[in-house]
Design a protein around this nucleic acid. Structure first.
Lengths: 148, 148
DNA sequence: CTTCCTGCAAAGCATTTGCATCCAT
DNA sequence: ATGGATGCAAATGCTTTGCAGGAAG
């Protein structure tokens, strides 16, 4: 069940399952604040920082709770943690599909790549080391065409 | 010339080139502090944070200068920036070969992977988007065998 | 009731910045 | 001399924590 969710795309997850049910599935008590955070996370087109989420939920959820909730969601396997940027941690709901980015080191432009077959190889590689992969981040650093 | 350095392994870089020459090659003025930082970076077995470097250079280089120097080295293409961990930025000299990690989300154990042919594919992929790649980080998140 | 959550404000850290001083050309 | 580099300390900004009040089972 969980696995199915993990592989589904975000729209699918939300179509079939409300935030509260998603939380229960992962043995996380669905409080008002947690539901709000999950929904905010789902509403975010890409990744979101705790600050981003809190901005959407002003007056509804305290900043500290947003931080605590995101950590909780990550531990529970509901959200993935991304460390793209130095100084802040990004989150996204699991099951949105992996994102690969091309980051220009000069202008910081970001090109988003779709899934590719590299992915399949990575999972096989991880399996050889006894790992069960729940997510990954690939960051390519370089200079984009226009900057060059 | 630069390219050769980028592809060499760390020991090679240090065998043929002292820190000062390495800096000059990248048009960076080799001050006493910068040379010290490069050497400290080379002495570090894996990645190092600014704090790590500063710990090795107590009384020799101020913390602020370590930060400024690492940023400079990264911009100049002497060092790569890694965002493994939330809250702190890691650096390593370019040319140490790319590191791939398997990170256990539960016990945080890290398994280091050697280079693999996935790399070649990534560069081709980036080229299709007009990017010139100088480095990359791949982070796989999951649960290791013993935790499972 | 009892346990877990939350909010608020007060820390905690890594990192950056302002400014006076110092160094190299 | 002159522009860049450094050190120190103050300031930032993200994140965590302590604690008292609240919600859920």
């Amino acid at each position: 069940m969980t696995l199915i969710l993990m592989d589904a795309t975000l729209p699918d997850v939300l179509r079939d399952l409300d935030a509260a049910s998603l939380l229960r599935l992962h043995t996380v008590r669905p409080t008002r604040q947690r539901v709000a955070v999950v929904e905010a996370l789902a509403a975010e087109p890409n990744d979101a920082t705790a600050q981003d989420i809190h901005a959407r939920l002003r007056d509804k959820v305290g900043l500290a709770t947003v931080y605590r909730t995101l950590t909780l969601l990550s531990d529970a396997g509901v959200a993935d943690t991304l460390n793209h940027r130095p100084g802040e941690t990004c989150y996204r709901l699991c099951g949105e599909g992996h994102h690969h980015h091309l980051v220009c080191g000069r202008c910081h432009r970001v090109v988003e790549l779709g899934d590719c077959d590299v992915e399949r190889r990575l999972k096989a590689l991880a399996a050889e080391h006894g790992f069960t992969i729940s997510g990954h981040t690939l960051e390519l650093t370089g200079v984009c065409a226009s900057c060059r």
